[in-house]
Structures are given as C-alpha cells and as structure tokens.
Amino acid sequence: STVVPPSLPPYFIKGSIIQLADGELKRVEDLKTEDFIQSAEISSELKIDSSTVERIEGSHTSPNFAVVQFSVGEHRAQVSVEVLVEYPFFVFGQGWSSCCPDRTTQLLELPCTKLSVGDVCISLTLKNLR
C-alpha cells in the first residue's frame, strides 16, 4: 500500500475523486486545465491566477522539502512556499508536476512531470468583490 507522509494531502493519491464546481466528479489524474478554469468561472469567490516558477531551492529545514518561489498574477507578487519535494502543482496545459516526480509517482501513483523554472502553475486568489 502507498505510504503518504502526514503533510501530503490524501486527495493527490491516484484515483481520488474530485468534485468540480458544476458538480461533475473526476479522478485527480484525469483533471485538465479547463476543469480548473471552468470551476473558477463558476465560483463566486475564487479566481485563477498564473503563478510562474522563478526559483526552486532545497530547503534548509529538511532534504525532503523544497522552497518554490512564484511570481503571482499580473502584479508579479513574489510568493515562496515550502513543500515536500513530491508535492504536485498543476501546470497550465501540461498537468501535474513536482520537484521530484519520481517520488510523486512512487508515493501517490500520480503521473507527474518535473517542475521547472518558467513553468506557469494554476493558483487561486480571491475575486475582487465590488
């Protein structure tokens, strides 16, 4: 059986059932870019932002972690996140990608490519409520 570290969420395991904003159910490995875009269009609170990977470094805390620096949205705000190296991000037009795709596939059985500088990931921000 697959052993998932406690800080790696269960919904990334292959076969997990994901509900889109219109109620449709899909497996996590079958999600497409359009699924996220259409779900965000339906959402009253959330919108999709583009987050471009600017830098990927090993963590000072633990070799199991990486620090990924993103440039977020049209304002290019700099945001760094510390994640397990197998943590998957969804890259526009490409799909699931992580710092260590071999580990992602090993632990989660989730098909995954290598996350690289310049990749544009899907992220969420709050819609402007006016």
Partner: peptide, 19 residues
C-alpha cells in the same frame, strides 16, 4: 469514498498588492 472539492488541489497564493 471521500469526495474532495476542486479548489483543495490548488495552492492559494494571495499576492500582496502594492498599488
């Protein structure tokens, strides 16, 4: 079988707006 909402899969990155 648990069902997870789509937005739980996406990191929430709120940019700080400086304008």
């Amino acid at each position: 079988v648990p069902v997870f909402p789509w937005h739980s899969l996406v990191p929430f990155l709120a940019p700080t707006q400086s304008d």
